[in-house]
Nucleic acid binder design. Structure first.
Length: 203
DNA sequence: TGCCAGGCCCTCTTTAGGGCCTT
């Protein structure tokens, strides 16, 4: 059985290195490409949320102040994920917050990440944009809720990933795409793509 | 004072620069 956890953070800024903290996390668990479970929580990191972030996400200071402590949320999130490999849209961003918030909670972060932006650039070079909303429109994916809320974006990323898994099966005859293939695919040079996927294709 | 990320990709590239993508 192939398990993948799709994760999305809402935060107060672009990077923890500049003091930004997570305000919400959502995780959608896929087994063999099907959604089987979800985790979502606002989280209180004890920081002020800039107005433009509230305008962007709809997450305000009162909401976060009433939320569980960030450390408790990360403990629950880490337990939910276990050793399941992770996927995110622009994974470099979410991986930094995953690692930073877990480190604050004295928890290890050993899960490998795959990135749907990099995968999309490989699988759909014809897409006009690889932003999450643009890809949803490009593929005709149904709406999942307010954009820039963690669960809605994680659900949309999961739907995009499901579309990618279907593309791998239908266009490239890869019967059981797994996280290891996604990691190889996202870093594979374009000319080498057919050879890589041929190795994974059903004989 | 002015600026502030960073990894990846593309190309009028490779002794580099600019755009994308995430909040």
């Amino acid at each position: 059985m192939s398990r993948i956890a799709v994760i999305d953070f809402e935060t107060t800024g672009m990077t923890p290195q500049q003091g930004a903290r997570a305000t919400e996390v959502a995780i959608v668990l896929l087994e063999d490409g099907r959604v089987v479970d979800r985790f979502q929580s606002l989280m209180n990191g004890g920081v002020w949320i800039p107005p433009f972030i509230t305008q962007l996400t709809g997450i305000g200071n009162a909401m976060v102040q009433a939320a569980p402590a960030a450390g408790q949320v990360m403990q629950d999130a880490a337990r939910f994920v276990g050793d399941t490999p992770l996927v995110a849209h622009n994974a470099a961003f979410d991986r930094k917050f995953w690692e930073a918030e877990l480190a604050r909670a004295d928890l290890p972060a050993a899960q490998p990440f795959a990135c749907t932006v990099l995968l999309s650039r490989r699988l759909y070079p014809e897409a006009p944009s690889h932003r999450l909303g643009a890809l949803a429109a490009f593929h005709g994916l149904p709406p999942t809720g307010r954009a820039h809320r963690a669960l809605a974006d994680a659900e949309m990323t999961a739907a995009l990933l499901q579309r990618m898994l279907a593309t791998l099966r239908e266009r490239w005859q890869v019967a059981r795409p797994d996280h290891a293939l996604l990691c190889a695919l996202q870093r594979c040079a374009k000319p080498a793509l057919p050879a890589l996927l041929a190795r994974y294709a059903d004989a």
